[in-house]
Amino acid sequence: MIRNFFIIAIVAGLAAIFVTLFWNFGDSTTLTPLATHYADKGAAEVGAPNLVTSIVVTYRGFDTLGEVTILFLVASIVSFFLKREKLQKDIELKRETSEIILTASKLLVPIVMVLGVYVFINGHLTPGGGFQGGAIIATAFVLLLMANPDFKINHRIISIVESVSGISFVLVGVFGILLAGGFLDNKVLPLGTFGKIFSAGAIPLIYSFVGLKVGSELSNILSNFQGIQKEEM
């Protein structure tokens, strides 16, 4: 009883704060000075039509490197925690996988993977980017695992793809120090024609590495969660 009272008091207190915030919310009509700089100079300085991408990959590229590092840490901690030590047994299926999901997975898995690659290669032109594309690739693996519960994702290929793309991401950044303005500067490669796929310097390259890395890390996490199901609980 007293516990419920405290919970309701805390939630109601936060709700009261939110109500004042809500009534005092003023519509903004102009951009902040920082955003104005990105909006007016972004096309000339970075050359990517998608301003969110130019902020994420170039203006705040260091943040993105940290973000990728955190995702890598999560993947390694999860695989450390869910390490399989005990005797494995096959999963006893309650029933067979349905015909619909089997057929659909055969048809859809390649298409979903191609969509993921499309989303991360076009990250500087359209909404999307490395993280979104990587997540789409991981959903293809989810579909594969749902259709074939005994499917094993090849850990060797995944770890090779992940480490190669991670090292290449950092190397592109270091080339930025040597050849252009600083770490992760995208002018390592020529800026090209505005709005074309091979433009915006190193952004398509960096986002492809990020996409491959995120896709392989998420698939690794998924395969760890799948593997522990076989352990005796």
Partner: peptide, 25 residues
Amino acid sequence: DPVPQALVLTAIVIGLGVTALMLAY
């Protein structure tokens, strides 16, 4: 404003990582 959108992109990825860790625990 594109800046909050870029920050939320980062926050979504971190949130995903935190959720995966909590599920593993």
